[in-house]
Simulated assay, not measured.
Amino acid sequence: MAAGDILAIFAAARRLQAHAGTLGKPLHGKNIALLLGRSPTGETPALHRAALELGARVAEVPFAEPAGASGRDDLRGLARMLGRMYDAIDCGTLAPATVRQIEQEAGVPVYAGLALQDHPVQVLADLMTLSDQRLPSAKASLLYLGDPRTKRGHAFLAAARQIGFEVRLGQHLQAASNDATIFVVDATHHPRWALHSPSNLLDEARRSETHRRVMQTVLLDTMERV
């Protein structure tokens, strides 16, 4: 994503936060299906709560992956039916090929696990959490600990550079121990990243709040355009 697009999402998420409690229910009357595969994750309720807060009705729908040619034909029909019943569909942990086929047939916004830790929304939420801690006039340096070649790591580092972070790579937290101006992203224990501002470890409550607001920004942007 371009820097302008990333910053626009941040701005929209901050507006949601600023108007918390007075936002009303902008997705009132909208219906969202959360498709639960064989291995539903604990992340699904986060999306459920985010959508409910906007006024949407949410249904958690058990869903089995199709098998064989007949299964793919059945999936096309099922995707069309879901598109008639719901205004948006989240596919959770379903296989990418299944998600693509549902997206082709449903005719409504389809998300590939919007609340999952490897989804770009989590990348943007983590980056926004760090951005909210930096001083506008200060040069922002970021030390990334862990494998930068993972899907999430690659996306995060690319987005961080886009919005002006100077990125360094390292293997140990001690690498930043003598630097009181650097942000640290500890991705060594995937998928549970730890984020450190120059002064402290950023708490989970703050990160969860930011993640919810970014998810809501995506839901509003995509569903209100349909």
Rank of each mutant, 00 (worst) to 15 (best):
M1H: 12
G4M: 10
G4P: 06
I6W: 15
I6K: 10
I9V: 13
A13W: 12
A13N: 10
L16D: 15
H19A: 13
T22S: 14
T22D: 14
T22G: 12
L23A: 09
P26T: 13
I32A: 10
A33R: 06
L34S: 08
R38K: 11
S39I: 14
T41G: 03
T41W: 13
G42A: 04
T44W: 05
A46S: 06
A50E: 07
L52V: 06
E53S: 06
E53N: 05
E53H: 04
L54P: 03
P62Q: 06
F63L: 07
A64I: 00
A64H: 05
E65W: 07
P66K: 04
R72V: 00
D73M: 00
L75N: 04
G77N: 07
R80I: 01
R84T: 05
M85Y: 01
I89N: 08
T93S: 11
T93Q: 15
P96T: 12
P96N: 05
V99W: 01
V99H: 01
R100N: 12
Q101V: 10
I102D: 09
E103W: 04
E105V: 04
E105T: 02
G107Y: 14
P109K: 08
G113F: 05
G113E: 05
G113L: 03
L114W: 00
H119L: 03
V121H: 09
V123T: 09
T129M: 02
L130Y: 00
D132W: 13
Q133W: 03
R134F: 01
L135W: 06
L135F: 00
L135Y: 09
P136W: 04
A138N: 01
A138R: 08
A140F: 03
L143M: 08
Y144H: 04
G146N: 02
K151G: 02
A155R: 00
F156D: 06
L157R: 01
A158S: 05
A158P: 13
A159G: 04
A159E: 04
R161I: 08
G164F: 10
F165E: 01
E166S: 10
V167L: 09
G170W: 14
G170T: 11
L173H: 06
Q174K: 07
A175I: 07
A175M: 10
V184M: 14
D186R: 15
A187Q: 07
H190I: 14
P191Y: 15
P191E: 13
R192D: 12
W193P: 00
W193C: 15
S197P: 11
S197V: 08
S199V: 09
L202G: 02
D203R: 13
R206P: 02
R206D: 14
S208A: 12
E209W: 14
E209S: 10
E209D: 13
R213E: 13
R213Q: 11
R213S: 13
R213Y: 09
Q216Y: 05
T217E: 05
V218M: 03
L220Y: 03
L220A: 03
D221F: 00
M223D: 01
E224H: 12
E224Q: 08
R225P: 02
